[in-house]
Design a protein around this nucleic acid. Structure first.
Lengths: 148, 148
DNA sequence: ATAAACCCTAAACTATGGTTTATGGCAAAT
DNA sequence: ATTTGCCATAAACCATAGTTTAGGGTTTAT
């Protein structure tokens, strides 16, 4: 009637390794997962939903101790709703900052790619190198280039 | 005439620690930085431009060994332009993937925040908990909630 | 009934990206 | 000339997030 999943199935579903799931359990991220009489972990579909949330937080770089905090709140029932919301709002701000970092740096990377793709890439690069060499020479510093 | 910077000034400018800069040097990321007679690192404005690039790659999660590869290409002059471009194009694809991951997971996080913010958050959460408890009970598994 | 596939824990090990400590030289202001 | 601040290296140490290994049960298909 109710579907269950083995650790291997969960690992494949979420593209995690079996040892990562055991590691998460050891770190307290899976207090909701039960075991059968043989000591095997039995995952329910509700467990899968919570693990999906764990992956979501992990994939946005939330540290494991904070994910554990969130999961612990979840196990407290409705009384922790405000705390869960605060935690996620704080995390959301981090994710947005990370998005902005990524976007700004991607612009830089694109500019470099464009420069390398342009017809006079060689001239641009050569001019940069000569500028650096002159600067170093004026300061009586070594020439760092491995050219010739 | 030509401006130079001490390690402390570079650290403050890029918001890195002094030991991180020394660590980067040890890992081969700063082959272009010269030293004065006393053995002190002397940073030129060209050096600053290259360090900015290092930070850009680092802040988009490029591993140090790949940053070193890129810098090594830069020290080879114009003959490595194609290799640099390939490396950056490959990295760009990674950054875009990371952006998509972030965006999708941020949507999930926002959905949760909305749920926690809604007027009937308590009912929603309570229903989820009851579903999970019934599921576990039907499978003769322990109730994981720390309620009452 | 036995081999193959699967599960368990505990503990050691790894990779990555640093930071800290110990020891000592150099530079600038008093 | 000496204290204070800055610089250097080498080596040890740390945190995070896992992975691997050793030793041992369980389950399933033949």
């Amino acid at each position: 009637m109710e579907q269950t999943y083995s650790i291997k199935e969960v690992a494949e579903y979420f593209n995690l390794s079996i040892s990562t799931i055991r590691y998460y359990d050891k770190r307290g991220l899976l207090p909701f997962v039960s075991k059968n009489d043989a000591g095997y972990r039995i995952f329910t579909s509700s467990d899968m939903a919570l693990i999906k949330t764990i992956c979501c937080l992990k994939d946005t770089s939330m540290p494991i101790r904070d994910i554990k905090l969130y999961i612990d709140y979840c196990m407290e029932g409705t009384k922790s709703i405000d705390k869960r919301k605060d935690l996620l709002l704080k995390h959301k701000r981090q994710v947005i900052l990370e998005q902005q970092t990524l976007e700004n740096n991607l612009k830089e990377i694109n500019m470099k790619i464009d420069r390398y793709s342009s017809g006079n890439a060689e001239n641009i690069i050569d001019t940069q190198i000569k500028y650096m060499q002159r600067e170093k020479k004026n300061l009586h510093l070594a020439d760092p280039f491995h050219i010739n």
